[in-house]
Computed example of a mutant assay.
Amino acid sequence: MAAAPTQLAFALFSLLFLLASSATAAKHKDPQNLIRSSCVHASYPTLCLRTLSTYSGPANSSRDLAQAAVKVSLTRARRVSNYLTTKVAGKSKKERSALSDCVEQMATTVDELSRTLGELKHLRGETFQWQMSNAETWVSAALTDEDTCLDGFDGVDGQLKSDVKRKITNVAKITSNALYMINRLDESRGKNRLNP
């Protein structure tokens, strides 16, 4: 009769162990957990988590996250570029000059992020390192362009400067997070062989 409680306890323990194991396995496959663990060390973790958590595409691997981060950055850069070219007009000569330069810089940023996304979509094992180098270079250049846009507003005061600064700073933070995700993908290659 004493064997029955022992068997029941063993069966209960086994069931709990299986439930815990399946919960752990599900946790590692959950895209939200991948996003959280990936964003924790990004330059702007809260922004990273917010922008990637609402991303509607796949986010099941480091490669997916790098592509998603670049897509988000590209979308934001396009919005700001559109805003600068269609909704903003400079009043003074300095404002118009700064705005004109900024429009150029943002167009270049959009091009560089587009090229980066194209590279990330077509990663191949034999050219992986070269492609990652291209992606890192282009995103770094996009960050430089965004900074250069802001530099053009030195000596300009007023609402135009604060609006442009707010929008460009946001894009720069998202772009910085995209660069982090690309670097993370590059580093993970040594741990897990890429299967494009």
Rank of each mutant, 00 (worst) to 15 (best):
K27W: 09
R36T: 12
C48T: 08
S14Q: 08
T24Y: 09
N33Q: 12
A11F: 06
I35Q: 06
L12I: 04
L12D: 13
D30Y: 03
S21N: 08
T24C: 06
Q32F: 12
T24I: 14
Y44L: 03
L12R: 07
T51D: 15
F13C: 09
A25C: 04
A26H: 03
R50E: 12
L12W: 03
Q32E: 10
C39T: 04
N33A: 05
S38V: 04
A11E: 14
P31S: 14
C48G: 06
F17N: 00
P31N: 08
T46W: 06
L34W: 03
L49M: 09
K29R: 12
K27N: 05
G57E: 11
A25Y: 11
N33D: 08
S38C: 01
T54D: 12
Q32R: 15
A25L: 14
A11S: 11
L47A: 08
F10R: 15
R36K: 12
F10T: 12
K29N: 09
L18I: 14
S53D: 10
A23C: 14
R36I: 07
P45D: 02
L52W: 00
S43F: 03
L16I: 09
P31A: 12
S38E: 15
Y55R: 00
L19R: 05
T51P: 00
A11K: 04
I35K: 06
S53Y: 00
L12S: 15
A20T: 12
L18F: 13
T24R: 11
L16V: 06
T46A: 15
L34N: 05
S43A: 15
T51V: 14
P31D: 09
S53L: 08
T54H: 03
H28I: 09
L18P: 01
L49Y: 14
A42D: 12
T54Q: 14
A23V: 05
T51E: 15
T24V: 14
L18E: 02
S53Q: 11
L12Y: 06
R50Q: 13
H28C: 02
L16D: 02
P45W: 05
Y44A: 08
L19S: 11
H28D: 11
A42L: 00
A11D: 14
L52F: 03
S22K: 07
S14F: 13
D30E: 15
F17T: 14
S43K: 09
F13H: 06
L34Q: 03
